[in-house]
Amino acid sequence: MNKKKTIGLSVYILFLLLPLYWLLMMSFKSNQEILGTLTFWPNEFTFANYMTIFTDASWYMGYINSIYYVSLNMVITLLVALPAAYAFSRFRFIGDKHLFFWLLTNRMSPPAVFLLPFFQLYSSVGLFDTHIGVALAHCLFNVPLAVWILEGFMSGVPREIDETAYIDGYSFPKFFTKIFIPLISSGIGVTAFFCFMFSWVELLLARTLTSVSAKPIAAVMTRTVSASGIDWGVLAAAGVLTILPGVLVIWFVRNHVAKGFALGRV
């Protein structure tokens, strides 16, 4: 029985890793080799594709732009979502259930629906092609998700803790920052991870709301298509480099990921 499970899991993991392996290996090949023969290992190991990216400002600025707006988005999302999630997990107030559902619908609605007015709105308030603009736009789907996850984690903390703290003379802001936030630190880590993930992978809004100075790497990648065909090697190298930040982030939250994926609800 256990052996069967291991084999099954290994097959699945192989299925997950093969396309990634192919991409990784291709990034070390020259274009002649990619288009010439099909090999499982580069005949001539080359870093030329990576050098192209690291020496060309229009390439590496794409990464910096993406990381910049994703970090901004994480900070904004956590700052506004923490108090809101506390309110949802601890109190009942007028319209609470409907407000919560309305927030969720924003996570569910396709960005394509809002594309045109988004462009107009952000241009009219001067947020077009700024990092903060993309960060705010991504809040549209990240904030509801963050509230949802954090609310789950916070509901797991017994309310007696709040009450004891208030009896001990803590004010709300002091209680919240000194006692409550450390208690749900794993939930905050997981939420930050989710914000990173969904903001990092999003393309449609990021591409529409930027032109030059805040252009994300995902949009830069379309440059590899030129008149002479697609520059496969550089495309693969750029793809590999977009996966690396995610790998780093997930390493930091590895112990909380399982609970986090259930949105704190188990």
Binding site: I13, L16, L17, L20, M197, W200, V201, E202, L203, I217, A218, M221, G239, T242, I243, G246, V247, V249, I250, V257
Partner: peptide
């Protein structure tokens, strides 16, 4: 490993 594909940007 399972979480890996989730972190790949959609266009990638």
């Amino acid at each position: 490993i399972l979480a890996l594909p989730l972190l790949v940007p959609l266009n990638v």
